[in-house]
Amino acid sequence: MKNVFRKTTIFLAMSGLLSCATGEKTPETTEAEANTEASTTNAIEKYEAYTQKFSEETLITQNHATGHVGDYFFTHWKDGGAASLTLNPEGEFSVSWEGGGYNYVGGPGWHFGDKDRVIGYRFNEDSGASYITLYGWGYDETMSTSNPEHLVEYYILQRWTYDPSQDGIYGKTFTSNGVEYSTYRSVREQKPSINGPSTFYQYWSKPTEQRELGEDYEIIFSDHVEAWADTGWIIPDMDNLNASDDPTYQVMAVEVFNPGNDGTASGRVWDAGAE
């Protein structure tokens, strides 16, 4: 694996050491903030089979892992094969994969989606990922599981070698931050999800042109939520810790499926709205 970082890498063994934020107050933390943090921490602990917290650059190799490196959440999932994710506390990441018949998706971001988040990112390398995409979930446990609207997996594509629009229905074309996107929706029937095997919708935003390597970009997420809603495609709760397997995270993900060759994709993600 090509390492683009300079710090010492921590290797996570398959068993993994699990730890979570304590939620303890600091002198600058108010009582309300401490209670909110403790409540969130306790809710995230339900995913203790996968959730880990690290303060230094970390290499993730398990088949299924979520957690935090510094303040950045990560997801790392594969159904076989050999793929790994390296992430540091500054949001710099690198995914490496070997060719084979399997699916992998992983990357850094946040353990919840936020309609008003502006996502900053830069891609340094891409040797043929199926997608590099803003990726996340929404989930409403009060809706019937027979209704695909109860669970939504969404993608805002930035680079790709596979075109998902061939499998979806067209929604609309719109412009966000100077980029023209077209939207599509597809359905997955009893496929892996953050809530076990489920039937759910996928929403896609696909730009007219792919993003270049080595440049900084921003995604205004609210524009995509509104564009999807214009055609009746509503995202359920994006800050939900009630799914069985993972929270409703939002990450800049690298996905590869049945890769024909070894490859690497790397870059950095940050919250541009917080700058």
Results as ranks from 00 to 15, higher is better:
213 L>R: 00
233 W>D: 13
209 E>N: 14
231 T>A: 12
216 D>N: 10
223 D>F: 01
211 R>G: 08
213 L>V: 01
220 I>M: 11
198 S>Q: 10
207 P>Y: 01
210 Q>W: 08
214 G>D: 08
217 Y>P: 13
206 K>S: 13
217 Y>I: 01
210 Q>L: 08
231 T>R: 15
207 P>N: 04
204 W>T: 04
228 W>R: 07
215 E>H: 12
220 I>K: 13
231 T>L: 04
208 T>C: 08
215 E>A: 11
201 Y>W: 12
216 D>G: 03
212 E>A: 15
211 R>Y: 15
222 S>Y: 08
224 H>G: 09
215 E>T: 15
200 F>T: 04
223 D>M: 09
230 D>A: 14
206 K>D: 09
223 D>H: 13
218 E>C: 11
228 W>C: 00
208 T>N: 15
201 Y>R: 09
229 A>M: 04
198 S>F: 00
224 H>W: 05
201 Y>A: 07
207 P>V: 00
221 F>V: 14
203 Y>H: 13
216 D>A: 14
210 Q>H: 05
206 K>P: 08
215 E>W: 09
215 E>S: 14
218 E>H: 11
227 A>T: 04
199 T>C: 00
224 H>D: 05
221 F>E: 01
204 W>N: 06
227 A>V: 09
220 I>R: 10
208 T>Q: 15
214 G>N: 07
222 S>E: 15
217 Y>H: 07
203 Y>I: 07
224 H>F: 05
200 F>C: 02
218 E>Y: 03
203 Y>R: 10
199 T>L: 04
204 W>Y: 15
228 W>L: 03
207 P>F: 01
233 W>Q: 15
197 P>W: 06
227 A>Y: 08
201 Y>S: 07
213 L>G: 00
202 Q>T: 02
200 F>Y: 14
210 Q>G: 03
